[in-house]
Write a protein that binds this DNA or RNA. Structure first.
Lengths: 243, 243
DNA sequence: CGCGGCTTTGATGTTCATCAAGTAAAGTGG
DNA sequence: CCACTTTACTTGATGAACATCAAAGCCGCG
């Protein structure tokens, strides 16, 4: 029920296109806390909010980087398309995250693609404005880099965490990730397919399914399609910790 | 012969401790190109240069982050110590690189350790000074973040490159990495042990040796201890490209 | 209502880590 | 400086972990 209501609200946003002003939205994120009312006004005037339905592409490898992308609502995957049409998911951005690593400073073109994995609202802020404020507002510069450094470092840490573990540890990781980090609940709807889970934690789709079934048989989780309930979080954490 | 000479020079540096001033050193790095003579003077006054012999530890996980570390000379590995005394190497910094990812903005403590893998000179600049210049010199802020963003993004890209390849592709990667990126020569001395190669590209020591032997038998490389000559770079690149 | 993509399970084969065992090289202390 | 110890290197054999292949049921969508 609640889900339906949110959906409707989001649709309205899509039509109006300028839902929130930055004081009530971006202001909440600590990266922007030290911008003056004046500066927020400038951002607010030139920002564009876009609604993306689940599955819709937001940006693609090779595209010019023109905006800083800030995720207001929803979930977005950051991934790389390999030669053989395979995809490799790097990370999943949640609300209040910025989307797309540091490429915005080191590249002129996106090196990864982004797609909404849940209905999402992305706020595009002209990159030149951000750069201008970095130049003119030193405190903002520090705040901003703290924020994006955290995201970037956590991508690196996650990659290591995943690659040093074997399959059971990886699945435990992904379950704990969605439960703790994304949904703050032991009960949630997996927003991505088994295949995408595989692409995210470097394993085959079949083995994702196999390990999930195994966990179900062991009464670690309850699972029906995308619907997941974590039954024994302590044991799951142990599996993650042991690799 | 030349090697001996450099060695001696480096030893002298160690004794004097303040070899170069920042105008002639850091100035060369484009991250610092927009600092005024005044600002460079401040950095110069408070910087500390330290010499590290091959194998010496520079910083350790858990240490307070007090300085921005800039590698003037040598090679440094950035790694994480796992529970079971195993090490996991994230990246290798070469001269002109900064050492240690973005943690300097997102953490107060180092999350990785660093050790010299060749005799190295590291320049420590008080972190507060860097932060102050980021606040007061907008152009420097942008330059600086361009630089560290590049390093950080390349760590992420490398991790993906390695983890999506199998053993032969990984060894090809590491050989091309040292040849092209570090030494700019098809003939070089591997600065790390087989074990460290294994820790860098996620494989067992035995298999590092096995694949290297295989490459030698296939006339791809010539190898005597740490001494490596790449004989067929085209074929090596193909092995890397195919995974 | 039929087609393609997602999901699931079992069987098979490959890739790779681990174990074992021996040689070479590099420190270390008397 | 030499005997001794430790660490690095190397090869082969074995088994575990995992991907791939195959086949069938399921679900959503045009």
């Amino acid at each position: 029920m609640i889900y339906i209501i949110i959906q409707t609200k989001v649709k309205k946003m899509e039509l109006s296109r300028k839902v929130s002003n930055c004081k009530s939205c971006i202001y909440r994120s600590w990266a922007f806390k030290n911008l003056s009312a004046e500066e927020l006004k400038i951002i607010n005037a030139k920002k564009v909010e876009k609604f993306y339905r689940k599955g819709e592409n937001i940006s693609t490898e090779g595209d010019e980087i023109l905006s800083f992308m800030y995720l207001q609502n929803g979930l977005v995957k950051l991934y790389k398309t390999e030669i053989n049409t395979k995809e490799h998911i790097l990370s999943i951005a949640k609300p209040q995250d910025f989307i797309g690593l540091l490429s915005i400073f080191s590249n002129t073109k996106h090196i990864y693609s982004t797609t909404a994995i849940e209905d999402s609202i992305v706020c595009f802020v002209d990159l030149e404005i951000i750069k201008k404020f970095i130049k003119t507002n030193g405190t903002f510069a520090i705040d901003f880099f703290e924020k994006i450094s955290t995201v970037s470092d956590s991508v690196i840490k996650t990659r290591i965490d995943i690659n040093t573990r074997q399959l059971r540890g990886r699945i435990a990781y992904i379950l704990l990730f969605f439960s703790k980090h994304i949904y703050s609940s032991i009960r949630f709807n997996l927003p991505i397919s088994r295949k995408e889970v595989a692409e995210l934690i470097d394993m085959s789709t079949e083995n994702v399914i196999r390990v999930l079934s195994e966990f179900r048989k062991d009464n670690l989780i309850q699972i029906e399609g995308k619907n997941i309930v974590i039954l024994d979080i302590k044991r799951l954490e142990k599996i993650y910790a042991l690799g």
